[in-house]
Amino acid sequence: MPFARSLLFSLLTLLCFGSAAFADTPDKIRLTNGEWAPYQSETLPGYGAASSLVTAAFAAVGIDVEYGFFPWNRAMVLVERGAWDGTFMWVLTPERERIFLASDPLFTLQEVVFFNKDHALDASKPEDLKGKVMGALDSSAFGRQFAPLIEDGSITVARVQNNQQLFEMLAMGRVDFVPELETSGYEAVLEHLTPDQQKRIGHLHTMTYAWSYHLLVSRQIDDGPYFIDSFNRGLEIIRGTGDFDRIIGALIRPKTIN
């Protein structure tokens, strides 16, 4: 029965190669993370809502996640060098697209302009803020709409390492405005400022800017394309199960100051 033996041999060969391929498929990804409540934090349940979303998406395709918490600049550099596999949640810029592989968007959130009510702002377009000092985080793309005014010196930028420092500067009048996501901005206000300082902080309803957020994976690792494809598939799965909407609920309900 030569044909039967040949068929059996072919099936065994396919099984062997299939098993080898499956064995080579990574079942864990190492991601750098940071402090940006309520989205990401080492002290929050599930490391924050965005971390929980990433964990769930990878879990849906059989991949575990290991998180390492670092200052944001270092978090990105470690992935750029391939020391860690990926990082999130980041907006795309031409430079980041050149350095990293990017996932489909996780979600889109609105940036607003925060100000100190003791020095109220009346602005509806970036040009209305000429001569002001903008507070911003290191490695943050927030404030992109002000880039031409920053480049020509019409707006000065003061950069700090975290949201606590950023909103403390705003409360003390050391900067005139801060572009940040509405949710994370008020989260920082409520967590880091005194009740009296909290009452001073508001945001402009006339100026918003939409940002889409992504997982970034190093181009220095062999499994980069596999991780991106797997994550995108995982996102679709958890959207279908309803887990996506359950996890990001906290992200789309900004806190306000009474």
Rank of each mutant, 00 (worst) to 15 (best):
I201K: 07
P148C: 02
G173V: 09
S52K: 15
K28T: 12
R233F: 04
D24E: 11
E111Y: 05
T241W: 05
A120L: 09
V157F: 02
L44I: 07
D245V: 09
L193K: 11
S41C: 07
D104W: 02
S51M: 06
P2H: 10
G48D: 00
R174W: 07
G234S: 07
I238L: 08
A250N: 11
F107C: 03
L53H: 04
T87H: 12
A83E: 14
P195H: 05
F227E: 09
N116V: 12
F167A: 01
F22S: 14
A37N: 05
A49H: 10
L170E: 10
S154Q: 13
H203N: 15
M89E: 13
Q220T: 10
L12Y: 03
D104S: 15
M169H: 02
F244I: 03
T43L: 07
I150L: 08
I247M: 12
A59D: 14
M169R: 09
R200G: 10
I155A: 10
I221N: 01
G34M: 11
A50P: 03
M76V: 15
I247K: 14
T55Q: 14
V178C: 00
L15F: 12
F146P: 11
E127L: 10
L15M: 14
L149C: 09
F227Y: 15
G234R: 01
L12V: 11
A50W: 04
C16Q: 11
L190Q: 14
W72E: 11
F9A: 15
S19H: 07
I238A: 06
P26A: 06
Y213S: 00
R98C: 00
L12A: 14
A120D: 04
I155C: 10
A4I: 15
H119F: 14
T25V: 08
L204W: 06
N162F: 05
R233H: 13
L44Y: 04
Y226D: 05
I247G: 12
L216H: 10
E35F: 03
E80T: 03
E97S: 07
F88Y: 15
Y47R: 03
Y213K: 04
E35Q: 09
L78F: 12
S212Y: 06
T13E: 01
R96Y: 05
R30I: 10
K117E: 08
S103K: 04
V217C: 08
I247N: 08
Y226T: 13
M169G: 00
A171F: 05
L78V: 05
G62Q: 12
F115R: 04
R96E: 05
F244W: 13
F3W: 11
A171L: 06
T93E: 03
Y39R: 00
R96S: 05
R246Q: 13
I248M: 05
V112N: 01
A4T: 11
Q220R: 15
I248P: 08
G34R: 09
M169W: 08
A50M: 13
P38H: 01
D222C: 00
M169D: 09
R144E: 14
P148T: 08
S52G: 09
G240L: 00
T208G: 07
M207S: 07
N33H: 11
V77F: 06
T13L: 15
P2Y: 07
L106F: 03
D128T: 12
W90V: 12
G68Q: 13
T108C: 03
L204S: 04
